[in-house]
Amino acid sequence: MKHLTPLNQKARRLAALIEGQRDAARPLLQDPPPTEYPFGCTTIFAPGWEVDSSGGVHGLCQPIERDLYDCYHTCYWPAQVPDGVTNWPKWTASCGAPMNDWKSIDLVFP
């Protein structure tokens, strides 16, 4: 802030806040960008295999594949996925980047 000098307490707080926001914005511009993890719709409630109001999945706020690993690896959401702990530990082995090639994950036939 070259042109303005904050004088009172409120002005100093505002200026510090603005400077702080400038610092906080920097990491996003770094190369490579920080890893983004697929979370569900919210960090505390992954709704998993839901449908939207039309019965499809296009209206959901997150692509359904983002929740796949919450269901499969952590058993966080009891959805209809293969049991990855004992019977199908390699179910997703063919899929390196689920955001792109989740369709390569096949059905299983117990």
Partner: peptide, 18 residues
């Protein structure tokens, strides 16, 4: 010159350009 800003109650010294 100075400004007292009603929206925040901040008081700033402003240089001739600002």
């Amino acid at each position: 010159a100075f400004v007292y800003v009603a929206a925040s109650a901040a008081i700033m010294a402003v240089d001739p350009l600002s």
